[in-house]
Design a protein around this nucleic acid. Structure first.
Length: 290
DNA sequence: TCGCAGGTGGTCG
DNA sequence: CGACCACCTGCG
């Protein structure tokens, strides 16, 4: 069954291929197939005007659309207004946004985001995707079939907590395996209760909890806050952001504190959204596409 | 071959 | 507290 919804400020490639998520694959027709919240679906976008058109979610229903896909795709947020505000506040942002005007910040599952960004450190997108799929296939539960493919959920904190580094060897996580296991133990110790509550905490409180977990430092914590906890002000500084902040604003590449202060001052509560535009701008410079 | 890829933890001054 | 540096794995 298909569900349709009209949206603005939308581009599927920019949303699913900008490094915020790792479980979606592009089909030949430009749609994306993947899984979130245990539901395998295909998401297509028929553009009827620039950045506007109809989203079609296949293998879903109205009920799931409202409870899962509407919030997941951040459809309540007016990105047009945000883009105008950012461009007003900074003279360079207009051009930066122009490289990825259809980006939307997904509201992903917390535990999946924790796993994904622990794995992401010092790695690259193809490998991150491979690790996550292998982890789900070997240690997760079956979520269902779609288009002849079987989809798997990621293992729960409890399941991962009982695994050894040796068990995880086939996933090829490298030194990140022990981070994952340690963090799973901590999260499973209260059955994920604190992790689930982080969305209601202040950013500072949630950040403190996250960075207290093994393998989660400032960058990964900020990604989790932005991509799964609705903290749009958090501004993850990775190597690409360091490069773009150096090139556009003249920051020294190691001046992370300066960059964060600049973002807080300039972009305020939209810092994380500005970060995605900046990231996409830098990664698509010079004709390169990831 | 060897450095580097969406960093972090550990150590040292 | 800031500046190193090792660390799994895979790819050019």
């Amino acid at each position: 069954m298909k569900v349709k919804h009209y949206v603005k400020d939308c581009n599927l490639d920019q949303i699913f291929d900008c490094g915020q998520c790792f479980r979606w694959e592009r089909e030949e027709d430009g749609s994306y197939t993947g899984i979130a919240f245990g539901k395998p679906v295909n998401i297509a976008f028929e553009e009827t005007a620039p950045l506007e058109g109809t989203l079609t979610i296949d293998n879903s229903c109205e009920r799931d659309f409202e409870s899962i896909w509407y919030p997941y795709l951040d459809l309540a947020r007016d990105y047009g207004e945000i883009k105008r505000t950012l461009a007003e506040r900074d003279s360079l942002m207009g051009e930066v946004i122009g490289s990825g005007p259809g980006i939307r910040i997904l509201n992903q599952e917390k535990w999946e985001t924790v796993i994904s960004f622990i794995i992401s450190q010092n790695s690259n997108i193809p490998r991150i995707k491979r690790c996550i799929e292998t982890l789900a296939r070997l240690f997760g539960t079956e979520a269902g079939e779609y288009a002849g493919r079987t989809f798997y959920n990621l293992p729960t904190p409890a399941v991962l907590a009982d695994l050894s580094v040796q068990d995880l060897e086939p996933v090829k996580l490298g030194y990140r395996a022990k981070y994952l296991i340690e963090t799973a133990k901590a999260v499973a110790s209260d059955d994920g209760a604190i992790l689930e509550k982080t969305g209601d905490m202040s950013v500072e409180e949630a950040y403190t909890y996250l960075t207290g977990l093994h393998g989660i430092g400032p960058k990964v914590a900020n990604c989790i806050l932005l991509f799964s906890m609705g903290k749009t002000e958090s501004f993850p500084v990775d190597v690409w952001i360091r490069r773009v902040m150096n090139r556009l604003y003249g920051f020294a590449e190691n001046d992370i504190a300066g960059m964060k202060a600049f973002a807080a001052e300039k972009f305020g509560s939209y810092g994380g959204i500005a970060q995605q535009y900046l990231f996409y701008y830098m990664r698509t410079r010079d004709g390169k596409k990831f």
